[in-house]
Simulated assay, not measured.
Amino acid sequence: MGQTIQIEKANSLKEKPDVSNIKFGTVFTDYMFSSHYTPEHGWETPTITPYKNLELSPALQSIHYGQSVFEGLKAYKSGDDILLFRPEENFKRLNRSLERLSMPKINEEDAIKALKELLQLEKDWVPDGPGQSLYIRPFVFADEPFLGVRPSRTYRFLIILSPVAGYSGAALDPTSIYVEDEYVRAVRGGIGNAKAAGNYAASLLAQQKANNLGYEQVLWLDGVHQEYIEEVGSMNIFFVRNGEIVTPELNGSILEGITRKSIIELAEYKGYTVKEERVHIDDFLKGVQDGSISEVFGAGTAAVISPIGRMNIHDTDYIINDNQPGDVAKDLYDHYTEIQYGRLEDPFGWVQKA
């Protein structure tokens, strides 16, 4: 890109919704950003237009062969300011995903500038209720109409925005987890550490199975042995063992979560001992049974931190910490979100104004 962004103004603006009453990802703002890639010109025609449907070919390569990646981050209201939390990390990860799927990288600095320009136009859409934010979805997909199996020649990069309430209102409500030991999501050497659309398609059957059994989310085991803990469908997983915070080590099939990375840095800053380990499900189960594991929680963009109060492991239900948020989860959540909303000092330089 590196070009001046053209802005097409809407003839009329939408009525702003009551964010507390809308479902995640169902309401979108007035505008969106888009850019198009060709081999001859690279990323070009950066444009902010009214939010609208796309006209696409039925032979679109992303539909048939899955060249589609995305990111998720949020904007927060702080007085008159709009704040972003580590957006550079999201666009770095977007480029890693693009590289893995043989797609052209974007210019990260240009992408952040485009996002900030879009947010300035949409600043009235950033809600200021407890736990509320504006969800940001950048995504890139192949748009060449061609049925041959090869990387597409052309692509589109878009950013759309959606106001969201807190994941569980503004409270830390514990969730329930089903440990999946039949299906697998990813293997090392595959695309498990890319934020690719196909990863999420691969998770849906097990997610439906868990929901039918009365659980909200799935905890995946490794794709080779199905014995080692990896991640929850929309979160990385942490647990407190003998007072220390433990999370599965990155292994090539676990998504490198930005919230995961930030929680580790914040926890170490606050004096906690954090360990990244290969965690066998039976060792984890033993810790739950003997009480050495006192808390379990997930970490991701949507929830920030989500305590896990009930787990099904090997077809047996276990209650964690009386199905209540633990002290460590609450401590990290409070500190983390206060930084995000600009209410506490940011010693890391994570937060920037839009």
Results as ranks from 00 to 15, higher is better:
204 L>Q: 14
195 K>W: 03
190 G>V: 00
225 H>G: 06
187 V>E: 09
202 A>K: 11
197 A>L: 14
207 Q>V: 03
189 G>S: 10
185 R>H: 10
230 E>Y: 02
230 E>R: 11
224 V>W: 11
222 D>S: 09
218 V>E: 11
205 L>D: 07
191 I>F: 15
191 I>A: 15
208 Q>C: 07
216 E>K: 11
224 V>M: 12
222 D>W: 10
189 G>R: 14
203 S>L: 02
220 W>N: 05
220 W>R: 03
204 L>K: 11
201 A>G: 15
216 E>Y: 02
212 N>D: 07
221 L>I: 06
185 R>D: 05
191 I>V: 15
189 G>M: 08
221 L>S: 08
209 K>N: 13
184 V>T: 09
186 A>T: 04
205 L>T: 06
188 R>Y: 05
209 K>Q: 15
187 V>A: 11
223 G>K: 13
203 S>P: 02
199 N>V: 09
185 R>C: 02
193 N>L: 13
190 G>N: 02
190 G>I: 04
225 H>Q: 15
212 N>S: 13
184 V>R: 08
194 A>Y: 01
196 A>S: 05
206 A>Q: 02
205 L>V: 12
186 A>V: 01
219 L>W: 01
218 V>A: 01
219 L>S: 10
188 R>V: 09
193 N>W: 12
197 A>K: 13
204 L>I: 12
187 V>I: 04
206 A>I: 14
218 V>T: 00
223 G>L: 14
203 S>K: 02
198 G>I: 13
222 D>K: 07
213 L>N: 08
208 Q>P: 02
196 A>Y: 04
211 N>C: 00
184 V>W: 00
187 V>G: 07
200 Y>H: 11
202 A>V: 01
217 Q>H: 02
228 Y>E: 14
188 R>C: 12
200 Y>W: 01
229 I>D: 10
227 E>A: 04
212 N>H: 04
224 V>K: 10
206 A>R: 03
201 A>S: 09
210 A>W: 13
